[in-house]
Design a protein around this nucleic acid. Structure first.
Lengths: 339, 339
DNA sequence: CCAAACCGCTAATGCGCATTATCAGATCGT
DNA sequence: ACGATCTGATAATGCGCATTAGCGGTTTGG
């Protein structure tokens, strides 16, 4: 095909086709424009040369000239590919990739964004390549609010995967709708006779946690039950002492630990205690216990985030969307003891 | 920080610091150069403005001017994030991301490279953004040899993850060293008294398969046994009839199927038949048995590929490297019946 | 019959940066 | 005191592309 020499430019193509660089550019971009006309014959000639040489425009130059790239940046605060982070990002990425492919965009993963000290990643570091992308997707359990503010003030199009509070202005996001999901779980528990419920977990440290706790409280209020909030380190004893019959556990890991502790005390789940998880179901089938809870629509969130970002790029706006969580019946919710 | 207006350029910084754009650029790049001198005072003044404004250079312009980006392209022939492809790419990506982060590079995933018809991806499509990256990593069970040839002839730095035969020239790669691994498994089997061995699988269609088969044949020759090659669709009966006592199965899925079939016939693994897996994942499957075989060092391959690519970018060359596979004892290899 | 519209194309310009060539002033040597 | 060297900075240029203004030449309308 082409020799090993310098890469082809539009200038080269122009020479070969006996036209100007402008014409090549026009043929390449303005397919059937009204303003500028190109004779069909000329167009064909140019296209033929392009085809024969396999010319491909330099994306950097293109970007510099017109400010577009069809590249979406993906920023995360931890490593994307989970060696140890429990496949947290993975389902999101599946959705993101699917959708990016559909709309013909490439994905730029900002893996280099570590702070020098090996601390947390940061978006606007010295060598940041954010501006190479048309827009960005933000992933992470929590996102630095200063980063959000800066993104906002710089007018960089982005969508956060996960709901975010305002940060010097409304933040575009697609999140999981935890509140009605948790509330619905509370409703089910109450319907099965549970009257003393507990939420075990921080309930703070990120919108997703506060949303869960709010959903719990709303559910308790709406369906009439006693609901208490206990810290993550709450023991099984604490629960039993308080007469709790259904526990809503924020962290999945705590959920498993609690079930194990119960087993060791001779309690049977869910006969003696109902346990509901409000956390991650990465692989429902792999797990030994089939907890009652809900599924976070991670993949759909990824897809939707790309769609929303595309929309922002097209016509601006500040989309905010919450996707429903699908309830999972599971096997750890049973009628309250004595019902 | 900065208003919502146009993004900052070096020109802006220059104005604020009362110097020329050139000076800003020099301060930014030539840290302590001998040719061009900048007064410490001036340098400080410029750096201060940069710090205060949070200026970040436009990567596209940078790239256009000096031809570097610190971006590594990642090309795959299927979707990277496996919803159904059995997590094939994932371990590679873990290693790639780790290492890219270490050397301060971002990753550009060419997700948009689908052919129009939804066919196979192709590197050099009309909108290819390969040239935005300094170099590329190629992932995939098989890689189009025309693509390789073009990559080679265009002088685009790249490293293939997986060994590749020459394609109009030697191909830089890091692969798994299947031959000694399979051969070593053969040795173990022979040491346990097995005399009639079989390789079940295509043995063609990609270097990794041919390498496995060659390793098998070499092992059989070296350690003195009867080794035959059967197609993937070979049945359990075929094996039993042939008096085979140890099967080396190329495809992991076939491995599982074979074990199941054996179980249904009342055979006990590995008492009546030893089964060894050679670890080619093409089709997803539920893992349940702990097969004897070896571990393909996928993560290490990813890491190493990035290192090699960095080396190529630095100083050229055509690295070719095979990484050892770690043998897995597993529970499906036992002494031959009657030993 | 002349001005206005149209046609197909190109020269010129700018995007933001890195780099080269050069320049004005200070310092030096003899 | 005057050319030579050194210092610290800048004007100019180019990377490859997209875009705008405008050019000769032909057709049209009144």
């Amino acid at each position: 095909m082409t020799g090993p020499g310098r890469r082809l430019t539009q200038q080269d193509i122009a020479r070969m086709a006996g036209v100007s660089q402008t014409t090549v550019s026009l043929v390449l971009n303005k397919r059937g424009d009204a303003e500028v006309r190109i004779a069909p014959e000329t167009r064909e000639r140019v296209l033929r040369v392009i085809r024969e040489t396999g010319y491909v425009a330099d994306p950097a130059a293109r970007r510099l000239a017109d400010g577009r790239n069809r590249i979406l940046g993906v920023f995360t605060y931890e490593a994307v590919f989970p060696a140890e982070s429990g496949d947290f990002y993975h389902p999101f990425l599946v959705g993101i990739e699917e959708c990016a492919e559909e709309i013909g965009c490439d994905l730029l993963l900002f893996t280099s964004a570590r702070a020098a000290s090996g601390a947390r990643r940061q978006i606007f570091n010295e060598e940041s390549r954010v501006r190479l992308a048309d827009g960005c997707l933000l992933l992470g359990r929590t996102v630095d609010s200063d980063d959000l503010a800066r993104l906002l003030s710089e007018g960089i199009p982005f969508v956060s995967v996960g709901r975010r509070e305002d940060a010097g202005g409304p933040v575009p996001y697609v999140g999981a709708d935890y509140r009605p999901a948790v509330s619905a779980l509370v409703e089910r528990a109450v319907a099965l006779g549970h009257r003393r419920l507990a939420y075990v977990g921080a309930g703070t440290g990120g919108e997703s946690r506060t949303d869960r706790l709010r959903g719990f409280r709303e559910g308790v209020a709406a369906f009439g039950a006693d609901g208490r909030h206990l810290p993550p380190e709450a023991s099984l004893d604490d629960l039993v002492m308080a007469g709790v019959t259904a526990v809503f556990v924020e962290e999945y890991a705590d959920c498993v630990a609690l079930a194990r502790a119960a087993g060791e005390c001779g309690m049977e789940i869910p006969r003696d205690l109902s346990i509901l998880t409000l956390g991650a179901f990465t692989r429902p089938v792999q797990v030994d216990t089939d907890f009652t809870g809900f599924r976070i629509p991670r993949r759909e969130m990824g897809r939707r985030a790309v769609q929303l970002l595309a929309g922002v790029l097209e016509s601006g706006g500040t989309p905010q969307e919450l996707l429903p969580c699908e309830l999972i019946a599971g096997g750890t919710l049973a009628p309250a003891p004595g019902m």
